[in-house]
Design a binder for these strands. Structure first.
Length: 515
DNA sequence: AGTGACTGCCC
DNA sequence: ATTCTGC
DNA sequence: GCAGAATGGGCAGTCACT
C-alpha cells in the first residue's frame, strides 16, 4: 500500500486476521484457526468460510478502510481493528475475501513483486523490457512502485528525469550474495576489497546539517541514534549519504558486543540511558553521495578514496578497514583472521564496481563459514523431533512446515529450536512419512519446559533425529535448553541415530562457551 | 505495576 | 537471516 | 542467476488483562 520508507503498519497478523474472519463470517475462532491450518493460507481459509454480501465497494473505499485500520491505536484499538477488518470482509465478495485477508500479512502470493512490476511497466511503455534498466535506476533511489507507475503513466520515461539521489530520501541498500569459497569469489569478481563483517545493524546515514538514518529495509531509524546528530565535525563535507554497520561496545572493556546485545539499542524509549549502557560505533564502509553529487555509479575504488577523505577521526564514525587483493589465498587468510577476532566473517567487494542496490550480480559477497562447512557453528547439533506444524503455502502439500527440535537433559528432552529451512521437497515428504507414524495425542511426558509459543500442531514421540547447523548459539529465555540456534538449517536426516544419542544440554552449553 | 499475547523489525 | 525451486 | 516463497531466534513496543 505504501513505499517501504513510509512507516505504515497494520498491527494485524495471523491471530487478528483469524479473529476478523471469525467475526465477519460468524464462526468460532477455533474453527477459523482450523480452516487456516488446513488451507495453509488465510486467503483460502477466508474464502472457504465466506458468508458475506458483496456491496461492490470501490477500491478507494477499501483503501480508505484499510488505511483507517493502520491509523487506529490506543485503548480499545485491537478490538476496533478487528471489527473494521471484519466489517470490510463482510461487505466484499468471496474472491475479495481471499486477497483482502492477505494484504495485512504482506502475503498476496501472486507470484510477483516489485521487480516484476518494473518489467511490466517497461512492457507498458515499450512493449518489451528495454526500459527496465532505467526504471530500476529510478527505483533504487525512489523505491515506490506506485509513484513510479503514476509518473511514467502521466509523463513517460521523461517523468523520471528528476528522480535522483536526495539527502533524506533512502536509497535501496546493496546486499550480499553468497558463493561457496574464496576461489569462486576471485574467479567471479577479480580484484576485490575485503572488509570485516560486523554483526550489528545496517545504518544508512544522511547528513545535511542534521542527520537522518534508515535501516536496511529503509525504515526511518533517526530517533535511535541521537549521537549521530553531531557528526558534522567528523565530516569534511556539507552533505553526505554514508553506508555503515552499527555495533555496540562494552563501555568498560571497549570490546564489540553480540548482535543480541546491540539490538537492545533498537528502541524508541529510554534512548538516553541505553545510549550510555550500549555505546555504538558506526563502521562506515561506503559513501553514496557527497555535496550535491551522486556517487552510485562511481567505482568502489574511487568511492573509497572519497570516503577516506570525507571522514575525520572522532567518536561515532570509523572508516571500516579493508585490504585489496586478487588472491584467493590472501582472501582466505583475511577471512580466518576476522573469525578469530570474533567477527562474523568478511565481506568481499568487487573493487571497480558501482554501488548496486539489491542483491543482483556479484558485487558484494559475504564470506562467513569455513570452506566446506555448513554454518559457522564449530559443530553441528543432533536433535530429536518433538513435533511439527502443518505449514503454509507450498508446504501444505507436504504436510510439514517446520519441526520442533529438542536436545537431551537426562532422560528428558527440552526444546532448542524450531527448524524450517534446509530440507528439499523430497526430504520434507520423507520427514512427513516418518513423523506421521510417531504421532502422539498429547505432549509426551519426557518433554519438559516447553513454552506455549512452541506448541506444535502435532506432537510426536521422540524417535527421529536430525542433524542441524547454525551460525551461532544464543542465550534463550524461551527454549528449555537455555540456548538456541541462530539461523538453524537441516544438514541431514539421521535415521542411524537413536534419540538417546542426540546432543545434550551440557554439550550445547560447551558449544556456547566455545564461541 | 506486572505479565502475557501479539506484532513488527532486526539479523 | 538460510535454503530450495521454477523459470 | 534471478525472483519468489517457505522457514529460523529474539529484541522492543503496544495493548489487554490482572
Amino acid at each position: 500500500m505504501a513505499p517501504l520508507y513510509e512507516a505504515i503498519e497494520f498491527g494485524i497478523a495471523d491471530k487478528f486476521i483469524v479473529r476478523a474472519i471469525a467475526q465477519a463470517y460468524n464462526n468460532s475462532i477455533d474453527s477459523v484457526t482450523k480452516a487456516f491450518k488446513k488451507a495453509g493460507d488465510v486467503g483460502t481459509a477466508a474464502e472457504s468460510l465466506y458468508r458475506g454480501h458483496d456491496d461492490h465497494l470501490s477500491i478507494e473505499k477499501v483503501y480508505d478502510l484499510l488505511f483507517t485500520i493502520t491509523q487506529t491505536s490506543g485503548i480499545g484499538s485491537r478490538e476496533k481493528k478487528i471489527r473494521l477488518l471484519a466489517e470490510l470482509l463482510s461487505s466484499v465478495g468471496r474472491l475479495s475475501s481471499r486477497y483482502l485477508t492477505r494484504i495485512p500479512l504482506d502475503k498476496l502470493r501472486l507470484g510477483f513483486s516489485d521487480m516484476t512490476i518494473l518489467d511490466a511497466l517497461s512492457w507498458m511503455l515499450n512493449g518489451n523490457k528495454s526500459a527496465r534498466v532505467k526504471l530500476e535506476e529510478a527505483y533504487n533511489v525512489r523505491p515506490d512502485i506506485g509513484y513510479l507507475a503514476k509518473t511514467i503513466k502521466e509523463h513517460g520515461m521523461k517523468g523520471l528525469s528528476h528522480v535522483g539521489v536526495k539527502v533524506g530520501a533512502p536509497i535501496l541498500a546493496c546486499l550480499c550474495q553468497r558463493l561457496p569459497n574464496a576461489d569462486e569469489m576471485i574467479k567471479k569478481m577479480g580484484r576485490v576489497a575485503v572488509e570485516p563483517k560486523y554483526d550489528g545493524v545496517r545504518v544508512q546515514i544522511h547528513y545535511q546539517q542534521t542527520t537522518k538514518t534508515f535501516s536496511r529495509n529503509l525504515e526511518n531509524t533517526t530517533d535511535m541514534f541521537p549521537e549521530l546528530q553531531n557528526i558534522g565535525k567528523q565530516l569534511n563535507a556539507r552533505e553526505v549519504i554514508l553506508d555503515s554497520e552499527a555495533i555496540g561496545l562494552d563501555p568498560k572493556t571497549g570490546k564489540l558486543i553480540s548482535f543480541q546485545e546491540t539490538t537492545t539499542r533498537k528502541r524508541k524509549h529510554d534512548i538516553a540511558e541505553t545510549l550510555l549502557k550500549v555505546p555504538l560505533k558506526f563502521f562506515v564502509f561506503d559513501i553514496l553521495y557527497k555535496n550535491g553529487e551522486s556517487l552510485l555509479s562511481v567505482p568502489f575504488s574511487k568511492r573509497r578514496r572519497i570516503l577516506e577523505e570525507t571522514i575525520r577521526a572522532g567518536n561515532s564514525l570509523v572508516v571500516s578497514e579493508q585490504i585489496i587483493t586478487d588472491s584467493a589465498a590472501a582472501l582466505r587468510v583475511y577471512h580466518d583472521k576476522q573469525l578469530k577476532k570474533g567477527l562474523e566473517g568478511a565481506v568481499v567487494k568487487k573493487w571497480d564496481s558501482p554501488y548496486e542496490p539489491g542483491r543482483r550480480g556479484y558485487t558484494w559477497v559475504k564470506f562467513k563459514e569455513e570452506e566446506g562447512k555448513t554454518g559457522k557453528l564449530t559443530d553441528t547439533i543432533d536433535a530429536v523431533v518433538m513435533g511439527y506444524t502443518s505449514g503454509e503455502g507450498k508446504r501444505t502439500a507436504f504436510g510439514i512446515g517446520q519441526v520442533l527440535l529438542g536436545v537431551r537433559r537426562g532422560d528428558d528432552f527440552v526444546t532448542v529450536t524450531k527448524l524450517g529451512s534446509g530440507a528439499t521437497e523430497k526430504e520434507l515428504g520423507g520427514l512427513f512419512q516418518s513423523l506421521k507414524k510417531l504421532r502422539m495425542k498429547e505432549q509426551p511426558k519426557e518433554y519438559k519446559d516447553v513454552d506455549k509459543v512452541y506448541y506444535p500442531d502435532v506432537w510426536v514421540s521422540p524417535k527421529l533425529v536430525l542433524e542441524i547447523a547454525g551460525d551461532d548459539l544464543t542465550k534463550s529465555k524461551k527454549h528449555g535448553a537455555g540456548y538456541s540456534v541462530r539461523f538453524p538449517r537441516l544438514v541431514r536426516i539421521r535415521p542411524d541415530k537413536s534419540p538417546h544419542e542426540v546432543t545434550t544440554v551440557k554439550e550445547v552449553e560447551t558449544l556456547f562457551k566455545q564461541q
